[in-house]
Amino acid sequence: MTLVLGRRSFPDDATLMMAIVNRTPDSFYDRGATWAEDKALDRVAQVVEEGAEIVDIGGIKAAPGADVDADAEIGRVASFVGRVRSAYPDLVISVDTWRAEVGRVVCGEGADVLNDAWGGADPGLVDAAAEHGAALVCTHTGGATPRTRPYRVEYDDVVAAAISDTVAYAERALAAGVARESIVIDPAHDFGKNTFHSLEVTRRLGEMVATGWPVLVSLSNKDFVGESLDLPVGERLTGTLAATAVCALAGARIYRVHEVTPTRQTVDMVDTILGRRRPQRAIRGLQ
């Protein structure tokens, strides 16, 4: 299905890189490297240069930590979205927020996508997206409260739960007026899930793709990779790329990433093997 992400449309065979840009002092991977606004803008310039189609700007780390209320979150992201919009008129800007109040402000500043990592915790977020013609990412968290870690979570069937919840969320967004081609679903690896859950979601991602809704995966350097390989943050790129390849094979459309170039190469290689994408330049043996 053609994807419409705010001001940009993408054909149904396009895969997209969504680069993470943190406006946080405490995110797990970069530990505040782009907390300063100019550093964050440098990060945007870098990922655009690397070919990212989307930037995902977040003002609150996912894990528990110092409270950041809506006003503080707006302070962290809204004017920054405006700066990025001015500098990159055609770039798709996503904002990682679960709050409708924040969603409305950032859409006013030029955001195209609201990436709700917390599975509809704020029921008004769909309305914020609809009011502004923004796209919406509908994730599965198993009903987790924002910024909580999973603790002894169980599912009868984690993939069935992810499909049921994300599709229900997508249909709620549709009913609220978000365009069908602007709704994306995301199983949300590690959110409300232990490592075995995230591995199963990865292994069975094709079942989510089969729903017909475009699927976003956020795998980058997460704990399910770290626990699978017993590696700390900073040493998880290879594992992340292996998981990326499995999701590409299944037909994921959007990849939320820290490392744009290696992920783009992984996805392109898988798509080329599968015949979805032509080799860039083929002459070996064909001279």
Partner: peptide
């Protein structure tokens, strides 16, 4: 044998 870029 076409690629995304034509070598010939």
């Amino acid at each position: 044998h076409a690629g995304r870029v034509d070598p010939v």
